[in-house]
Amino acid sequence: MPDWKQIVGKRLRVLGVCSPEFTEELAGHLEDSYEALLCQGLPAEAAFHRTMRQIEVHGKSWFVLRFLKEDLMTDFTRKVALPGLLTFASAMVIAWALDIAHIQPKTIFLTNGLFLSLPIAWLCLLPFCGAAGALVSRRNGGSWLQRIVASLFPSSIMGLVLLLIFVAGFAISRFVPDSGWNWALAAPGLALGLLTFTVLTAIPLLLGAGAAERVGKASSRTACNI
């Protein structure tokens, strides 16, 4: 008899989705399937392969993604959207305050008229926004995935806006002659924009979320001790 618990554990232990309890449950399911096939008169090897198809037919990543999607979409508004909007709003308020205080981004000029605008002060303050989003999501019962998504909301929104601007600019250039669209500038410009406002903002936001995670864990331990 195959060791189903070991098989399931090996194949689906990804991203912490497969807890020992869940592994045992899936192993039980496969064990029952396998025995039913044996009872139908299938040889052991064929029964094994047909049973394995249940976790291999769509690939393990699909299986895991289904769980992650379920996890992410549960109480999406309370656990992801609202904390995410709080993260985004606080990031925008900080950017606005820095602008009022005349703390300008550092501009690095590159070749071909391109430049990289690095809002260093803003980036340094972003961990607080990421932490706030993650903490609110945690307080609303968000899972670790929901907390991360909530803290990365500003990066996602800015990335999306940049892509939309790019697509809109390209679309306009198709219909408006002499619109000034220049691939040589637009494509690197998009790449630089995505680097600054999506990748570089994601790092401090994640750092903040990580710090919030540690604070949250420590406070829950303290609460348990009390």
Binding site: H29, Q54, I55, H58, W62, R66, E70, T74
Partner: peptide, 14 residues
């Protein structure tokens, strides 16, 4: 299949 059934059961449980 398992990938449809168990996420749903876990959602019901939550």
């Amino acid at each position: 299949d398992m990938a449809s059934l168990y996420p749903m059961l876990y959602r019901f449980e939550r």
